[in-house]
Simulated scan of single mutants.
Amino acid sequence: MPNPVIHVANHATLPVCIARDPNWDDQVLLIGGRPSRQTRCLDPGANASIGIRLGADTEPEENLMGVIFADAKDVAHGNVGAYHATIGHDPQTGLLAVTDEHIAGVPSTRYEVANQTQWSMDMTFVDA
């Protein structure tokens, strides 16, 4: 079973910070293939691949991983604009997608999803 991978590109003029969602406490978010429990910010023009490792018996599902994309590292205190995104398989297409999101505050960026396959997708952040 392949692991889901999201290719994130920051085309905005401000950093985009990536954090694991604390509601998914057993999830180990991989950034650049390495486990990360800390928020990592992508400077304008930077790219990163994020994902998780799945067990051998994991089937495609709508709720695979939780990721926060925020305006700053201080995600935990809720003082920044952020997208709390659930990534999984779209039940209609079977492709990897943002299957649910909660928007906190007013994010300075917006994102577009493209090049979706069953196990990967691109997310490009631009100025809102």
Rank of each mutant, 00 (worst) to 15 (best):
G94A: 04
L64E: 12
P35K: 15
T58Y: 08
P91F: 02
A19Q: 10
N115T: 12
V113C: 11
H89V: 03
R20H: 10
M65Q: 01
T117E: 13
T109G: 02
A82L: 02
C41T: 05
Q92I: 10
D71F: 10
H102V: 05
H102S: 07
E61A: 10
T58D: 11
V98W: 04
P44C: 12
D25T: 15
N79I: 13
T93E: 02
I87Y: 00
F69V: 02
D57N: 15
H84W: 15
A76G: 07
P107H: 07
G105E: 06
G78M: 11
E112N: 10
D21V: 01
G32M: 15
Y111P: 03
D57V: 09
R37K: 14
P44N: 13
A82W: 00
P44Y: 11
Q116L: 07
W24E: 11
T99Q: 03
D43C: 06
G66E: 08
R110P: 10
L96W: 06
V106M: 12
C41A: 11
I50W: 05
D71Q: 12
G105N: 03
L42D: 03
A97S: 08
A46T: 04
V75F: 08
T109N: 06
A104Y: 03
A48H: 08
L30Y: 01
K73Q: 04
D43S: 13
W24V: 07
L54T: 11
P91A: 04
G32H: 14
Y111D: 01
V113K: 15
D90M: 01
S108R: 06
V67K: 07
I87V: 14
G81R: 14
P44T: 09
I31P: 04
A85Y: 04
R37A: 13
N115K: 15
A76W: 05
A46Q: 10
V75I: 14
V113H: 11
F69Q: 05
V80A: 11
F69K: 02
T99K: 13
I50Y: 03
T109F: 13
S36K: 00
C17R: 03
G33K: 14
I68T: 10
H89T: 01
V67F: 02
H89R: 05
G51N: 03
A97I: 00
H84R: 15
A46K: 06
I31E: 06
G33F: 12
A56F: 12
L54S: 10
Q38V: 14
E61D: 14
D74P: 12
E101H: 09
I68P: 07
D74Q: 14
S49N: 14
